[in-house]
Nucleic acid binder design. Structure first.
Length: 434
DNA sequence: TCTGGGGTCCTAGGACCC
DNA sequence: TCTGGGGTCCTAGGACCC
């Protein structure tokens, strides 16, 4: 059996952990740049706040309904996520961290005790006691069915917080209650297609024949079909595999046509890509930069441009990746256009130890490697962005709004309703008065 | 003034090989 | 009257996930 543990309204729940006065109150969390709603507490859902709605159009509604609005605080969510996962792993070590708020647990060897209910309760209680985050648990013979169980658990608002599908009767009943579009792996397109064939529930999907599914949904759909019939096709992945490409991009707080500001943004994105590469011990052979205008702005024609550059030698060096990223930027930047977003993508990875040298390479790579190690060490010790390239500018991405330097950069994120980094920053720790 | 930011996998078709 | 039979690699596009 496999369990899927999923945090309830995760980001909204995180905001509550250090601010219990928010218990029972409606909360929404906004995307980067305070753009759209990406998380809602149950109370906010009940008041009619939709996933993805555009925040600035709804501010009056939020105010009128006493809905608490937060900017995304990924430093906080990431740290609480890590703690949730650690607690789950203390119960069941066979854990696959699937996303920031979900994990699959392999219960093989635990199922024999035939007391999955106790197990599910234990996990929920321990996570709530240790971190203060409520979770839902779905348990079933396959990953896809565990997802179904979890989905149903939330949909039915189960008091005990878990659903166990341990026989065919329960599985069928569950499948009949889940709409096809809510099945893991069925997106908007496939839902529409299947609806066209009068398939509206997960149960009806399991009655389709293999060839039909393979033809229309490829082998991915076929695997899902078998999973929903109870035949495991998706393995557990206990260790995170290295990424095959890495992208760092942000919308600007406000539009800008300033070359210097955009250059600063691109330099920061490139530096972040380099840092992520070093963390997974990869080097990239290609760096790609894109810039674009606001797609929603009707007063200006949409412009999106990108440029890839092949590096002479695959690298994860900040100075080198930044150098080529800025070179790419120069090739696509045009003055007189108001840009809204920029990003850097690195791809074509090779393991750090496996980099093919270039006969004409003039870099002292060993020396630069040591430099990067030192920079990473300093930044880990003293805080993100402590040591960086001058071209990245003196404003910092990760400094909390009120501590930000006076000079304003229009590329910097808008995050006007940011909560403190309660658990990762000395200056922002909770103060308790006795 | 204002609309997010990451990722993965699969398939078809073209170019090329012997 | 007639024009083989395999392959691989790469890319773009489409689907999906959180």
């Amino acid at each position: 059996m496999i369990a899927l543990v999923d945090c309830n309204n995760f980001y909204a729940s995180c905001e509550r952990v250090f601010n219990p006065s928010l218990d029972g109150k409606p909360i929404v969390v906004l995307s980067n740049n305070d753009g759209c709603v990406i998380a809602r507490s149950q109370e906010a859902k009940d008041k009619g706040v939709e996933m993805g709605e555009v925040a600035f159009q709804r501010m009056d509604f939020y105010a009128a309904n006493s809905i608490h609005v937060f900017s995304s605080n990924y430093t906080l969510y990431g740290d609480l996520s890590r703690r949730v996962m650690e607690t789950l792993a203390s119960v069941i070590p066979e854990i696959e961290i699937y996303s920031i708020d979900e994990a699959f647990l392999d219960l093989t060897g635990y199922a024999q005790f035939n007391d999955l209910a106790t197990l599910a309760s234990t996990m929920r209680e321990r996570v709530y006691q240790n971190i203060g985050i409520p979770v839902s648990v779905g348990i079933a013979p396959t990953k896809a069915l565990a997802k179904i169980a979890n989905r149903l658990c939330k949909k039915l608002k189960r008091k005990n917080g878990f659903i166990i599908l341990d026989n065919q009767e329960k599985i069928d009943a569950a499948l009949k209650m889940v709409a096809i579009g809510d099945v893991w792996g069925i997106g908007r397109r496939y839902a529409k297609l299947l609806n066209g064939y009068h398939v509206t529930t997960a149960y009806e999907f399991t009655k389709l024949n293999d060839d039909f599914v393979k033809k229309h949904l490829s082998v991915v759909g076929l695997r899902l079909l078998h999973e929903l019939r109870g035949k495991p096709c998706l393995d557990m992945e206990f260790s995170a595999s290295a990424k095959k490409n890495i992208c760092t991009s942000r919308s600007f707080g406000s539009q800008t046509d300033s070359y210097l500001e955009i250059r600063e943004a691109v330099a920061n994105h490139a530096a972040m890509c380099a840092e992520k590469l070093r963390r997974q011990k990869s080097c990239a052979a290609v760096v790609s930069v894109f810039i674009e205008t606001n797609r929603f702005d009707t007063r200006q024609v949409y412009v999106g441009r990108s440029k890839s550059i092949n590096l002479p030698v695959a690298s994860n060096d900040t100075t080198e990746l930044t150098h080529y990223a800025l070179k790419a930027l120069d090739l696509i930047y045009k003055a007189g256009i108001r840009y809204k977003k920029a990003g850097v993508i690195v791809l074509d990875f090779v393991p750090q130890e496996n980099v093919q040298a270039n006969l004409f390479d003039v870099e002292n790579r060993e020396r630069k490697k040591q430099l990067m190690q030192t920079v990473d060490k300093l930044n880990r010790w003293a805080g993100k962005g402590m040591v960086k390239l001058a071209v990245q500018g003196t404003g910092s991405f990760n400094v909390k709004a009120q501590n930000e330097p006076k000079e304003h950069r229009s590329w910097q994120l808008r995050r006007e309703r940011l909560s403190p980094r309660y658990s990762t920053c000395w200056e922002e720790l909770l103060t308790v008065r006795i």
